[in-house]
């Protein structure tokens, strides 16, 4: 289970990754799943335990995520549940 941040554009996703890494959060990049939006954007994954710290770091950097989801697997399929 992971928390997934989506962003308004790739620049915010990359800037967000940079801020989270600087803040000591173990963040991973992945392509934006088609079920979460059109286009070929990037989104960020963090451990659920790092969610609050990540939100704080992003807000402090003036980056507002477009969406926030919990990524899990149900019946062998990856599902994204809005948070």
């Amino acid at each position: 289970m992971e928390a997934v941040f989506t962003f308004h554009n790739a620049g915010e996703a990359i800037g967000g990754e940079r801020r989270l890494l600087e803040g000591g959060v173990k963040v991973k990049v992945m392509p934006l799943p088609a079920s979460l939006g059109a286009g070929c954007g990037l989104c960020l994954r963090v451990a659920p335990g790092d969610l609050d710290a990540s939100l704080g770091l992003l807000r402090a950097a003036d980056i507002s995520p477009q969406g926030l989801y919990l990524r899990g697997v149900e019946g062998g399929q990856t599902v994204y549940t809005p948070l």
Partner: peptide, 14 residues
């Protein structure tokens, strides 16, 4: 380079 490094991580995840 910064974009490229993020894209590579995204590529490997994919």
């Amino acid at each position: 380079e910064e974009l490229g490094k993020s894209l590579m991580k995204s590529f490997i995840f994919s």
